[in-house]
Design a binder for these strands. Structure first.
Lengths: 335, 335
DNA sequence: TTGAAAGCGCTAACAC
DNA sequence: GTGTTAGCGCTTTCAA
C-alpha cells in the first residue's frame, strides 16, 4: 500500500514495457510509434493516472510564452473600474503581434507574500506589468528579488523600487482641472482624492493643492474616496456637509465623479450650476454621464502600450527608462 | 561578440569563483555563506544579468500554486458581462482557504492553437476552469492532451470532451421562463438566443421551443443576440419587425434583456404592458433595470464553487463526476 | 562554510 | 520504430 506518489514517465514506460522515449513519443503524439506500443502506453497512462510534469517539460523546451498583468486589488474593483479593462485591452493590443499570452493576476493588496508572491516567484510568466500598486504591497521587492522583468504602470510608491515605470503626469493633470475650476469662477473648491497610499492618489492631490495655494485659496477641503463609486458618493456628502457653499470639486477618478454627481443631485445641487465638477480618466462613463463630465484624460491604452514596449525591452535583456506621458483636459458640461 | 544566450547559475558561479551550490545559496538567501562569497556572487549576478530559470527550480521544488480560469472571449466581453466577474468572484472565494492563486486567461475563441493553447500546454498552472466554451475552440482537446486537470463551467459543446463539468439545467430554466410568459397570457412569444455554438445558448433555446411546441404554438420567432448588449437590441428590433404583435419574449441573458427593453421603449412599446420580457442570469442589472427584470437565476457563484471543488478533486488524483444544478425563476416587473 | 555529485522528469539527438 | 544516452538549470544531501 505504499503511496507511490505521482507516476512519472518512467513508471508509464515500465508498465507499458517500452522505453521512456517511446512513452514520450506516444504522449506527444509523435506519429512514428507502432500501434501496439501506442495502445500499451495509453493503457499505462490511464491505469496510472499519469500526468506529465510540466516543469520538467518546459525545462527542456524553452521560450517565453506569457506575461502577467498584476493587479493588487479585489476582483470586484478590477471589474468595476473601467480603468482596468482599458489597461488590459491596451496590453492585449500591444501584444497582438507577439505570441505572448496575457494573464491577469489579481489579489488583495498586501497579500503579496501570500499566493500572489508565491505565484510570481513561481516563474510562470516571463514578465509582469504591475498596475494598481499600493504603498504597502511589497510587490516590487518580490519582483526585484526574483529578477522577473517587470514594469509598473503608474509610478511605484516607493522610491526604492528600481524597475522602470510609465506614468502620466498626474499632478499636471490635476492642475489643469483645478485651474479650469478657478477660471470658471469657482470660489470654494474641494477635492475627492484617490487612496493616499497610491502615487496617482497623492500626485493628483498635490496638483490640486499647488494651484489652490498659488491662488491663495484654502486647501483643506479634502476627502478621500478610495477610487470606488460608493467612496466617491460618501466623500461628496462629507464635503458638502463641511462646506455647504462648495461650488467646485476636483474628483480624482471618473468612477467617483459620476457617483459624486449623483450624490449632488440627491442633495439638491445642480451640476454645474451650483457645483462644478471635474473628473479624471476620461473613461466611457464620462461621455455617458448627465451632464457630460469634464475630465482629465488618462491615456490608459497608450500607457499600456508603452509599458508593454518597455517590458519587451527588458525581456530582451536591454534596459529601459521610465516614461511620463502628458495629459490634457476635456471640457464637457459638468464644469 | 558571441551572443552567450541566457546566463545560468553555472556562469554566475564560475564568474564569482565559487561552486554552483554556493551561488544557489546566495540567491536563495541561505544564511550560511561567507560575506565575501555573497558579495562576489551578487556582483556576478548583476554583471551577468542572471535570472533563475524557474522551470528548473520548480522541477526540483514541486507543489501546485495556481489555477487558471480560461475564457475564450475578448477582454471586452469578459469585462462587460457580469457573468464573468461573478464567476471569477466565486472561484476566488472557493479558493480562499487554499494557497492557490487564480489567474485569468482570456483570448479570442478559436485562437486555441495559438497563444492560449501554448500557454496551457506550457504547464504554468496546476489546473484550469474553462468558462464560456464555444463549439469550435478545441480547448478540450488541448486540455485532454496535456492532461491538465480541468473542469468546464457550462457543459462542453462537444460530446467527445471527457472532462467533468458543472452546469445549470439551462433548458429547464428556459422552460420556466417560457411557461411564465404563457401563464401570464402572452400569445406571441419570441426569443433572443445566445450564440448557437455554445451549449448554454442551445439549451436555453431548446427549453423555449419545447414549451411552445407542447402548447401548440409556433416556434419560429427566434433571433440571435450573441450574449452582447448590442446584439440583444438588434435582435429585439428584428423580432418586432418580423412580428409587430409580439407580446412576450424570452431573452437568453440579462445583459441582452436590458438592452432589449431599451430597444422596446425606443420603439414605443411598454414593458410589460405591450411586451413581457424574461431574462436569464439574475445579474445585478436585473434588479437595477426599470422595470425590474423577471429572470431565471443562474447560480454563478455556486457553480463556480462546485467547479473548484471538482477541480481540487482532480488535482488530488481522484476523479469527479459532472454536476447539474437546478434553477428557478425570479419574478419582478418585466413579465 | 563550501564543493562534489546526485538527481528532479522530461525531450531530443543518435544509433540501431 | 525503438532504445540509449545526454543533458535542460536548479536544489540538496553528504562530506570535507
Amino acid at each position: 500500500m505504499a503511496a507511490k506518489s505521482v507516476p512519472t514517465l518512467e513508471d508509464v514506460a515500465t508498465r507499458a514495457g517500452v522505453s521512456r522515449a517511446t512513452a514520450s513519443r506516444v504522449i506527444n503524439a509523435d506519429p512514428r510509434v507502432r500501434e501496439a506500443a501506442r495502445v500499451a502506453v495509453q493503457a499505462a497512462v490511464d491505469a496510472l493516472g499519469y500526468r506529465p510534469n510540466r516543469a520538467a517539460r518546459s525545462l527542456v523546451k524553452r521560450g517565453p510564452d506569457s506575461i502577467a498583468v498584476v493587479v493588487p486589488e479585489s476582483d470586484e474593483r478590477v471589474f468595476s473600474d473601467p480603468f482596468f479593462s482599458g489597461t488590459l485591452r491596451g496590453v492585449t493590443q500591444a501584444l497582438a503581434s507577439t505570441p505572448l499570452q496575457v494573464v491577469l493576476v489579481m489579489g488583495e493588496a498586501g497579500d503579496d507574500d501570500g499566493r500572489m508572491g508565491r505565484y510570481l516567484r513561481g516563474g510562470h510568466t516571463d514578465g509582469a506589468i504591475v498596475v494598481s500598486h499600493h504603498q504597502d504591497d511589497n510587490l516590487w521587492r518580490v519582483l526585484e528579488q526574483t529578477q522577473l522583468p517587470s514594469v509598473f504602470l503608474g509610478r511605484p510608491y516607493s522610491e526604492q523600487a528600481t524597475m522602470p515605470y510609465v506614468d502620466v503626469d498626474n499632478a499636471a493633470g490635476a492642475r489643469l482641472a483645478t485651474e479650469h475650476l478657478l477660471a470658471r469662477g469657482c470660489r470654494t473648491i474641494g477635492t475627492i482624492t484617490g487612496p493616499p497610499d497610491m502615487s496617482a492618489g497623492r500626485d493628483r492631490l498635490r496638483g490640486w493643492e499647488e494651484v489652490l495655494r498659488e491662488a491663495g485659496r484654502p486647501t483643506d477641503l479634502v476627502e478621500s474616496g478610495d477610487f470606488t463609486a460608493a467612496g466617491g458618493a460618501a466623500a461628496m456628502h462629507r464635503l458638502l456637509e463641511r462646506s455647504p457653499d462648495l461650488d467646485g470639486v476636483f474628483v480624482a477618478s471618473d468612477l467617483m465623479a459620476v457617483s459624486a454627481i449623483g450624490e449632488l443631485s440627491t442633495l439638491g445641487r445642480e451640476v454645474p450650476g451650483d457645483v462644478a465638477v471635474v473628473g479624471y480618466d476620461d473613461s466611457p462613463a464620462a461621455t455617458l454621464s448627465r451632464p457630460g463630465l469634464t475630465t482629465v484624460v488618462n491615456p490608459v491604452s497608450q500607457m499600456a502600450g508603452r509599458a508593454v514596449a518597455l517590458l519587451l525591452r527588458l525581456m530582451a535583456g536591454e534596459d529601459a527608462e521610465p516614461e511620463v506621458l502628458s495629459t490634457r483636459l476635456v471640457v464637457r458640461e459638468s464644469a
